[in-house]
């Protein structure tokens, strides 16, 4: 599943280290975003719970999907 990891404020300067730790626990990291302090990627359901225990991880949230109406619809 696709996930977004929120890095806590204290660990934002060391976000790349947090990303390495996530990788070691089985997360496939797509993007490390230092400006926002977020890391996005994917992980299996079995390994999801393990991510939250990593130092510097404030939260792990499953991605939401967003869908626009078709271009012909009057209300967008």
């Amino acid at each position: 599943m696709k996930v977004t990891v929120t890095v806590d404020d204290e660990h934002r300067p060391s976000i790349h280290h947090v990303a390495e730790q996530l990788g070691l626990r089985g997360m496939v990291v797509d993007r490390v975003l230092p400006g926002l302090g977020m890391i996005t990627g994917s992980v299996t359901a079995a390994l999801l719970a393990g991510l939250g225990t990593i130092d510097g991880v404030a939260a792990v949230d499953e991605d939401l999907t967003y869908r626009l109406p078709s271009p012909g619809d009057a209300v967008q």
């Binding site: 977004t4 993007r31 975003l33 400006g35 926002l36 977020m38 991605d63 109406p69 271009p71």
Partner: peptide, 14 residues
């Protein structure tokens, strides 16, 4: 097709 998810949106915000 009008769809997306958090990963792309958050990357766009950054």
């Amino acid at each position: 097709s009008g769809s997306g998810s958090d990963g792309g949106i958050i990357a766009g915000i950054e």
